[in-house]
Computed example of a mutant assay.
Amino acid sequence: MTDHASSIGLGSNLAPNNVRLGNDLHMPITWSESALDLSSRVRVRFVGPLETGAPVVVLHDAGAESVDAPAWDMVAEHRPICQVMLPGVEGSTDVPDGADITWMTGLLADVLVTLGAPPTTVVGTSLGGWFALETALAHPALVQRLVLLDTAGLHSPPGYLFGLFADGQGQGGHDELLGPTMRNHRVPDHPAAIAPYLADLTAAALHSWSPHLPDPSLLTRARQLTTPTTILWGADDALIPVAHGRALAEVLPNATLEVVTDAGHLLAVDAPALVAARILGRPVPSGRHAT
Rank of each mutant, 00 (worst) to 15 (best):
H265V: 04
L115E: 10
R183K: 12
L198T: 01
A203W: 10
V187F: 07
S92E: 08
G159I: 12
T226E: 14
E90F: 02
I29G: 01
T105Y: 03
S34D: 15
Q169F: 15
R223T: 13
H212R: 15
A277N: 07
T181M: 11
T181A: 14
R221H: 10
V275N: 05
V84R: 10
L25N: 12
T230H: 11
P28K: 08
G129H: 03
A199P: 06
L239D: 10
D37A: 10
L142R: 09
A136I: 09
L206W: 03
P49R: 12
Y197M: 08
R278Q: 13
W31Y: 08
P158L: 13
G11C: 09
V47K: 02
V269Y: 09
D167K: 14
P241K: 05
I231T: 04
H4F: 14
P283W: 05
H190M: 04
W72N: 08
L206H: 07
L133N: 04
E250F: 08
A205R: 15
H289F: 00
T261F: 02
D270T: 04
P241R: 06
P118N: 09
P49L: 06
W72E: 07
R43A: 09
Y160P: 00
A109I: 10
H190Y: 10
I8Y: 12
D236V: 01
H244L: 06
L213N: 05
E65I: 10
S286H: 13
T230N: 08
G88P: 06
E258M: 04
R79L: 11
F162L: 13
V111P: 00
V269E: 14
A69L: 12
H174K: 15
L21V: 13
G168D: 02
L14H: 03
L25V: 14
L248Q: 02
M182V: 04
G98Y: 09
V260D: 06
L248I: 01
A277C: 07
G281F: 03
Q83D: 11
V187T: 13
I81E: 06
L198S: 00
H207R: 09
T220P: 00
T114L: 07
L149Y: 11
W233V: 02
L239S: 05
L59R: 02
N17S: 14
P214K: 01
H174D: 08
L38W: 06
T151F: 06
D175A: 15
A255V: 05
N184I: 14
A35G: 01
Y197A: 05
L274I: 11
G91N: 04
A277R: 08
E250S: 13
A222Y: 08
M104G: 05
L21H: 10
D270G: 03
W130A: 04
E134K: 14
I29V: 15
H78M: 06
G281Q: 05
V269T: 02
L266A: 10
L248H: 01
R183A: 01
D37K: 08
A76C: 02
W209D: 15
D100Q: 06
L25W: 13
V122H: 07
A109Q: 09
R145H: 10
P283G: 01
H78P: 00
L164C: 13
N254S: 03
R183Q: 12
G153I: 13
G179P: 07
L50E: 03
G172F: 08
N17W: 08
R183G: 00
T52F: 03
